[in-house]
Design a binder for these strands. Structure first.
Length: 329
DNA sequence: AACAAAAGCAACCGCCGGACG
DNA sequence: GCGTCCGGCGGTTGCTTTTGT
C-alpha cells in the first residue's frame, strides 16, 4: 500500500495559477505567514490548491526578491562550477545565487547552460554558434578524439592548473552547503578543467573524467558523493563504466600523468550515506581493493564475460551504479 | 500565412529524510 | 524503535511561446 496523498486530488485545482489565486496566497502569507504548515494553508487562505502547490508557487514565484530574467556570466560561472563540484543539487546551487530559485536554475541548466557547455565541447553538434560566458571564450577547445580525452585532460593539468590535481581552493564563507566545506574551504574547479569535467558530466560522450583533488580520478554515478573531510568532492553522471573508460583512463595515465599507476576499486550500495563513511586512510565507501592497471583490466574482462555490452557487472542485477576508481600515488 | 518543430518554463509527481508522538 | 506526517528536493511532464520552413 502506498503513501496516502497529501491532499484530495479530486477536489484540488491543478495547472497554472490565476492572478486571483496568486494574490490570495500572497496576501495570506504576508499577513499570517505560512504557519509552519503548508498542508493546512490553502484551506485557511481560501484556495482550492494542494499545499505543496502553494509552497512551490510561493517559493518559485511570489516570494519577495525573486529574480527573473537573464542569467549573468557570473551566475553561469557559479552554476557551472558548483555543478561540477556537487552535481544537480539545485537547492544548494540556488543558495549561492540570491534571488534565484532551484527550479529556475534547474530549468536554465537543462534548457540553456548545458547546451552552451555542449557547444563549447563539441561545436559541430550545434547548428549555429552560441554565445559563451566571457570567462570561457579564450580557452582552447578540447580534442574531439575520445581516445585522447584523458591525455588532453592530463595536459590541462600540467599546463593550466595551479596544482597537479587541477583544483584550487577558495573561500566561500557564506556557503550553507556543509557537504562542500572543509574548514570553511570549498572545492572549486579551474574553469578550463571544468570543460573536461562537464564533458563527462553533461554529454552523451562516453567518458566521464572527473578529476578531484589529491590526484583522485573517479568514475561512476554517485552524484551526491562528497566526503565530509574534504578529501574528495565529486560530480558525476549516472551511467555504467565501460571498458573504454578504462582504456581511456589508461591512456590518460600514460600520456598525461605518471607511470605504473595504482587503482583502488570500490563499490557501494544505493545508500548514499555509505559513501560518506570515511575510512581512516581518507578514502570512503566500501573498503577499497588495490589494483594495478593490469589488475583492473583483468577485473573488467572477467566481469564482462557473458555480458554483451561489455559493461562491468558486479551484481546480479547487472547494474553498476556505484563504482569508482581511485588513482593514487 | 500556416504549419511543424524546438525551446522555454511553470507546475506536478513521487521519493526521501527529519521531526514528532 | 516504530509509524506517520510534512517539507524539501530532483526529475519529469506538458502547456505555451518562439523559431524555422
Amino acid at each position: 500500500m502506498g503513501r496516502a496523498p497529501c491532499c484530495d486530488k479530486a477536489s484540488v485545482k491543478k495547472g497554472p495559477w490565476s492572478p486571483e489565486e496568486d494574490s490570495k496566497l500572497k496576501l495570506y502569507i504576508e499577513s499570517h505567514g505560512t504557519g509552519g504548515n503548508w498542508i493546512a494553508l490553502p484551506q485557511k487562505a481560501g484556495l482550492k490548491r494542494c499545499g505543496k502547490s502553494c509552497r512551490l508557487r510561493w517559493l518559485n514565484y511570489l516570494r519577495p526578491n525573486i529574480k527573473h530574467g537573464e542569467f549573468s556570466d557570473e551566475e553561469d560561472r557559479i552554476i557551472c562550477s558548483l555543478f561540477a563540484s556537487i552535481g544537480s543539487r539545485w537547492s544548494i546551487i540556488a543558495a549561492q545565487l540570491p534571488g534565484r530559485t532551484d527550479n529556475d536554475i534547474k530549468n536554465y541548466w537543462n534548457t540553456k547552460l548545458k547546451k552552451k557547455i555542449m557547444a563549447m565541447v563539441n561545436p559541430e553538434t550545434q547548428r549555429k554558434p552560441h554565445p559563451f560566458p566571457s570567462s570561457y571564450q579564450t580557452l582552447p577547445l578540447p580534442s574531439q578524439s575520445l581516445s585522447s580525452l584523458y591525455k588532453d585532460c592530463g595536459s590541462y593539468y600540467n599546463t593550466l592548473c595551479k596544482n597537479p590535481a587541477g583544483f584550487e581552493y577558495s573561500n566561500i564563507s557564506s556557503s550553507p552547503a556543509n557537504t562542500l566545506n572543509h574548514n570553511n574551504t570549498t572545492l572549486t574547479t579551474n574553469s578550463s578543467l571544468l570543460f573536461h569535467t562537464l564533458e563527462g558530466l553533461v554529454s552523451p560522450l562516453p567518458y566521464n573524467p572527473a578529476p578531484v583533488k589529491d590526484n583522485f580520478l573517479m568514475f561512476g554515478s554517485e552524484a551526491s558523493c562528497s566526503s565530509s573531510d574534504g578529501s574528495c568532492s565529486q560530480i558525476s553522471y549516472g551511467r555504467e563504466i565501460k571498458q573504454e573508460d578504462i582504456s581511456g583512463f589508461q591512456s590518460y595515465i600514460s600520456n598525461g600523468f605518471e607511470e605504473n599507476p595504482k587503482f583502488m576499486l570500490s563499490y557501494g550500495s544505493d545508500n548514499v550515506n555509505q559513501w560518506g563513511d570515511n575510512k581512516p586512510n581518507g578514502y570512503f565507501g566500501e573498503t577499497p581493493l588495490e589494483y594495478d592497471l593490469e589488475g583492473v583490466k583483468q577485473l573488467i574482462s572477467s566481469n564482462s564475460e557473458g555480458n554483451n555490452d561489455n559493461n562491468m557487472v558486479f551484481d546480479e542485477n547487472k547494474t553498476l551504479e556505484k563504482v569508482m576508481y581511485y588513482y593514487y600515488h
